[in-house]
Amino acid sequence: MTGQPVRLAAIHDTPLSVEEVLASLDDDADGGVTLFVGRVRDHDGGKGVSGLDYSAHPTALARLREVCELVAARHDVDGVAAVHRVGALGIGDIAVVVGTAAAHRGTTFDATRDLIDTLKAEVPIWKHQLFADGTEEWVGTP
C-alpha cells in the first residue's frame, strides 16, 4: 500500500489508457478494484451524435484532485484514480476512466460510482456535443 489514496488524477489531450488507471491502483492489499470507463456514444436525447469536444477550465486538474481526495475520505478505499480527456473525440473514444481499490469489492463499487458522479457534477470540464443533423449543444457549462 502506498499510503497515498489518490494514485492518479490527470487530464490528457491524447487517448486514455484503461491500463494506466488499473496499474495505478495495483496493490496486493486490495481484493477489489472497480473501474468505470466512459465512452462517446452515437446518440443523445434521440438525436444522432457525430462527435464532441471537451474543454477544461484552468482549475480543472486541481478540482479533479480535490474530488479524488473527497471520495477517498468518504469511503474506506486504499486507492483512487481519475483521468479525463479533453479535445476532439469521436464515437467510441474513451472520455473518462475512474477507479478505486479497497480490501473488499462492495466498497469499490460504491466509491467508484461516487467518484464518477462527483467528478461530473463538480469538475469544470465541459462537453461540446456535435449532432449528425448539424446542430450542437454545450453540456455542463455554468
Rank of each mutant, 00 (worst) to 15 (best):
E20Y: 00
V21R: 00
V21Q: 08
A23K: 06
A23R: 12
A23P: 11
S24I: 12
D26P: 12
G31E: 12
G32Q: 05
V33Y: 02
V33K: 01
T34H: 14
L35K: 04
V37W: 03
G38D: 11
G38T: 13
G38E: 11
R39A: 08
R39F: 11
R39H: 15
V40T: 13
D42G: 05
H43Q: 03
D44C: 08
G45A: 03
K47F: 00
G48A: 03
S50E: 14
S50D: 09
L52N: 03
L52D: 05
S55A: 10
H57S: 03
P58D: 02
P58S: 02
T59R: 08
T59H: 11
A60T: 11
L61F: 08
L61K: 02
L61P: 13
L61T: 08
A62H: 15
L64S: 00
L64Q: 01
E66P: 08
C68V: 01
V71W: 00
A72C: 04
R74E: 15
D76Y: 01
D78Q: 13
A81R: 10
A81M: 14
A82E: 10
H84T: 06
R85Y: 10
G87T: 06
L89K: 07
L89V: 06
G90T: 02
I91V: 14
G92Q: 04
D93C: 03
D93G: 00
D93L: 10
I94C: 10
V96G: 01
V98H: 11
G99R: 12
G99E: 13
T100S: 13
A102H: 04
A102Y: 13
A103W: 06
H104D: 01
H104P: 06
G106M: 01
G106S: 03
T107Q: 14
F109M: 05
A111N: 09
